[in-house]
Amino acid sequence: MLRFSANLSMLFSELPLLQRFQAAKQAGFAAVEIQFPYQLSAESIRQALRTHDLKLVLFNVDADDLLQGGEGLAAVPEKQAYFKTAVARARDYAEVLRPDCINVLPGRCLNAGRMTEYRQTLGENLLYAADVFAELGLTTVFEAINSHDMPGFMVDGSAKMLSIWHELNHPKLRLQYDIYHMSRMGEDCMAFLAEHVDKIGHIQFADCPGRGRPGSGGLDFASLFDAIAALPYEGWVGAEYIPGPVTAEGLAWMKTPSASEAAAL
């Protein structure tokens, strides 16, 4: 069964963040996720979730300067103390908000000669985060981001994600699989999901190219959603796309019959 969550860092961005919870509920979502919730207090988020009967399923550990073109936080050897501080802050939020998963963004290595060192640091930090969040019963995830939108990202494809996952072999570490990013890299998302669903902690999507709502690009979301629904996947499927000026006007995909439903009509 498909369970959609609204990524409030992208959807309903025409509203202040605290107002997006109500908008998501009114649009029919039962759950939300936030990339970086730290502009709000954990208590204010908890109150918004309670008021609108929503579940928070995911948020990220702070990524420092990653979104501004920097290397980020999780793989930089000189930033390991800062990473542990960021994990502690995320743990404080998680104790209050109780998400299913917490995401760690691997980041960039801007000096190719240090890639081995950065890769080792990333592994150490992922294990550290997984241990900390496991104390709360939570799953740590990490994701690949396409190298077109984010040049130099260390983990830009499924094979790299799998290699790290197998190497670290932590019982509370899973993959965050983003259909948009992997489609942008030319990968067969349905084939990967079918083969590796047991390793996936969270799924996100946007259409490709453009990272817009389903139906704005070239992906067959009726078939994709059918494929996910048929998998033994119990997690949430996060809508993390760039909406139009009014998010609610672009949610027809939530009400469109899947491929199998349409065939039965």
Rank of each mutant, 00 (worst) to 15 (best):
V155K: 02
P151D: 03
P171A: 07
R20W: 00
H202D: 08
P37F: 00
Q35F: 06
E43F: 15
L105Q: 03
M185P: 11
Q120T: 12
T256M: 09
R50H: 13
T256G: 12
L122C: 06
L110R: 09
L58S: 03
M1V: 02
P243F: 01
A252Q: 14
F221R: 12
K79F: 02
Q120C: 07
V237G: 00
F205K: 04
P77V: 08
E261C: 03
M161G: 07
L110D: 06
L15T: 02
R50E: 13
E43R: 15
G201D: 08
Q204I: 11
N103Y: 06
R119Y: 15
K172H: 15
I200K: 12
N169W: 14
V155F: 00
A130K: 06
E78A: 15
A230W: 09
L219N: 03
A31T: 01
M150A: 10
F221V: 06
P214L: 14
E249I: 13
A222N: 04
P257L: 15
P232R: 05
L127C: 13
W253R: 08
A206S: 02
D100C: 11
N111T: 05
S183E: 05
G152N: 01
M154K: 05
T116M: 12
L56A: 04
A144K: 09
Y93I: 12
T116P: 07
L58F: 04
L66M: 04
Q22S: 11
M115D: 01
D131V: 05
A86V: 02
G235S: 03
E261P: 05
E117W: 07
N60L: 00
S223T: 15
G218T: 09
A264P: 07
S216H: 10
E261V: 05
F133H: 08
Y177M: 11
D207N: 10
G123N: 08
W253C: 13
F221N: 06
R119F: 10
A248G: 08
T121D: 07
E143H: 08
Q120I: 08
K25C: 12
A227S: 07
I102V: 11
L168C: 13
P151Y: 01
S163V: 14
Q47K: 15
R89G: 00
F29P: 08
L127E: 06
L175Q: 04
A63G: 08
Q120W: 08
A74E: 02
G28H: 08
V61K: 01
V237N: 00
N125F: 09
T139A: 12
A27N: 07
G157Q: 13
F142S: 09
